[in-house]
Simulated assay, not measured.
Amino acid sequence: MNTRNILITGILLVIGIAIIYTITGTESEEFYQETIQKERERQYKFLKYGMDSPLTDKQKSDFQELEYYPIDPSYKVRAKMVPVEDRKMLELPMTDGTVEKYLKHSFAEFELNGQKISLLLLQAAKESDKRNFFLAFADATSGEETYGGGRYLNLRQDGKNSITIDFNLAYNPYCAYNPDYACPLPPKENILEIPVLAGEKDYKKE
């Protein structure tokens, strides 16, 4: 089974997305909408034409579009980073039954739709840039409108003790498109009871 890690591709996008966050913090809502839409178009082109795309040749041929929730600026939040008291490596289960190691780094604390939320920020064991983080989460839409194994965000710390989280950029792991890939499952700390109506919806296989 091909167990290629989706983070390899995701990390390459972190710097670009961080720039998006910086720009959209001061620009108009129209510009923000355009920026998110461009990122979605980039994701489509990667899946459709990319050499490292998880789609098979047959899937690429049939692939027409990705489904998303409407872009909603309220799902872009500023979170306080609270360090984990006893930082240690976490063996995160993969979809194929294996495990992959991540550092339990910080909790991102914020409010979303009037509710206080705390999500665990992870760092890949081999991550060289200590401002890059991985967030895997599941919510009330998982297994319904979104992929049952959860969705991902690649984040970059943009403040001394804070980080921007934009759920409009939430994307599916490779295994949502192709079961030959093994992907990390969200830790128990990141399983939300509320729906996150933002980001990518489940991939509909033809």
Results as ranks from 00 to 15, higher is better:
Cys175Ala: 03
Val196Phe: 07
Ile11Gly: 00
Tyr44Gly: 00
Ser142Gln: 13
Ile15Asp: 10
Gln123Thr: 04
Ile191Gly: 03
Ala18Leu: 03
Ser106Tyr: 11
Glu67Thr: 09
Val77Met: 07
Glu144Ile: 13
Gln59Trp: 08
Pro83His: 12
Lys126Gly: 09
Thr141Gly: 07
Gly143Ala: 14
Pro179Phe: 04
Glu65Phe: 12
Glu189Gly: 03
Gly159Lys: 11
Leu169Gly: 02
Asn2Arg: 05
Phe46Gln: 10
Pro173Asn: 04
Asp96Gly: 05
Arg151Asp: 04
Asn178Met: 03
Tyr152Trp: 13
Asp62Gln: 15
Pro195Cys: 09
Tyr68Asp: 08
Phe110Trp: 14
Glu30Arg: 11
Pro83Glu: 12
Tyr174Val: 01
Glu145Ile: 08
Gly114Ser: 05
Ala176Met: 04
Leu135Glu: 02
Ser142Ile: 13
Ala108Ser: 01
Thr9Gly: 09
Gly149Lys: 01
Asp166His: 01
Glu144Ala: 15
Glu85Leu: 05
Ile8Asp: 13
Thr35Leu: 01
Pro179Cys: 03
Thr24Glu: 05
Phe107Asn: 08
Gly25Met: 11
Arg78Leu: 13
Thr146Ser: 15
Pro54Phe: 06
Glu144Arg: 15
Lys80Tyr: 12
Asp180Met: 12
Gly143Val: 09
Arg87Lys: 12
Leu66Gly: 01
Gly143Glu: 14
Ile165His: 04
Leu121Pro: 01
Lys76Ser: 07
Leu13Arg: 10
Tyr68Asn: 05
Leu13Lys: 11
Cys183Phe: 07
His105Met: 06
Glu27Gly: 04
Ile117Lys: 10
Thr24Leu: 03
Asp129His: 10
Asp180Lys: 15
Tyr21Leu: 04
Thr95Tyr: 09
Glu100Arg: 12
Thr22Ala: 08
Phe167Leu: 03
Asn132Gly: 02
Asn190Gln: 07
Lys38Thr: 13
Tyr44Thr: 00
Ser74Phe: 13
Glu145Leu: 15
Val196Ser: 01
Gln115Ala: 14
Arg4Glu: 15
Glu189Ala: 07
Ile36Trp: 01
Gly159Glu: 14
Lys130Ser: 05
Leu13Asn: 12
Leu122Tyr: 03
Ile71Met: 02
Ile8Ser: 13
Gln37Val: 00
Lys130Glu: 11
Glu91Asp: 15
Phe63Val: 06
Ile20Tyr: 06
Ser61Cys: 11
Val84Leu: 04
Glu200Leu: 02
Ala18His: 08
Pro173Ile: 01
Thr24Arg: 00
Tyr68Arg: 00
Glu145Trp: 10
Glu100Ser: 08
Ser61Gln: 15
Asp180Arg: 13
Tyr181Leu: 08
Pro54Val: 05
Glu200Asp: 08
Glu27Tyr: 07
Glu30Gln: 12
Asp202Phe: 07
Gly16Leu: 01
Ile19Asp: 08
